[in-house]
Write a protein that binds this DNA or RNA. Sequence first.
DNA 1: GTATGAGTTCGAGTCGGCTCGAAGTCAAAC
DNA 2: GTTTGACTTCGAGCCGACTCGAACTCATAC
Lengths: 149, 149
Amino acid sequence: MTAAAETMLSIGEVSALTGLTTHTLRFYEQEGLFVEAVRRNAAGRRVFTEQEVGWLRVCAKLRSSGMPLPDIRRYAELVRKGAGTETARFDILRRHEARVQQQVADLQEALNVIQAKVALYADHDHLAAGSADTLWRDGPACTPARQVP
Amino acid sequence: MTAAAETMLSIGEVSALTGLTTHTLRFYEQEGLFVEAVRRNAAGRRVFTEQEVGWLRVCAKLRSSGMPLPDIRRYAELVRKGAGTETARFDILRRHEARVQQQVADLQEALNVIQAKVALYADHDHLAAGSADTLWRDGPACTPARQVP
DNA sequence: GTATGAGTTCGAGTCGGCTCGAAGTCAAAC
DNA sequence: GTTTGACTTCGAGCCGACTCGAACTCATAC
């Protein structure tokens, strides 16, 4: 840690850098998603560092892939606690990784169904308008979803 | 169309076959997601055909891949109108296909970030506990999300 | 000095898609 | 005949993650 001055960023700048609205950034602070308490300047305004921008970008990726806020908060808490919490953090990430992979697989499956239908309609364009009535229900076998009784 | 009796299914059976709750099935009817008006027996209970089960499975796939109910409703309406609406249906599907592909791409990108982090933590397990403090913010460049002003 | 624009706090509202519960009907099993 | 269980309608509630608006404070530009 040298004496180099850290770049100080306003909430608006951070918003521009992360794509998160200022509203969302305040909301995230409230939700405890930041690793360190957000600092304020003399006027009481939030001041961010580039490190925080980096973290927020990670957060954005986690969120966009469906990690719930409570999980991100927990991850942030572990980071705050520092050394000794690596395994727990690892766990959170691994679990989320599995979820995302499942999501991708599910989407791929849906994509198969959709693309098969698209192909049917595309074919139909080259044909007479006789078979059209059944296109909507044709397609690859859609497995009945698992029951959660 | 022969005189073969269609299998008549109760809402509970359809629920079991599709994985959608009875509540959801009634809700879908209300929302106009069915291609034909749902029939009732003498006692006023809903009676479904296997064709409807097929359609519901398609619906479930569309939903699980994020198609909004209004789009599904519109698709159902077009099917209801019959011949001449194929191009419009095709359009809805193609648009959704594109959305899903985008979703997959986004998830893959998130997965890259997550997996890079997972790898960092995994590595760390084999090392001394010194570099740990920076793992949480390390990772592949997270592009700032597009601004929607 | 005042207008502008960016920041602040707070609480309330929105959204989609279910999800639930209450109160009632009905048919078959016993 | 009564109990069970699956059905009916209706409207309300819930969930997470924002999203918005009002009312206010500041700092700088002109």
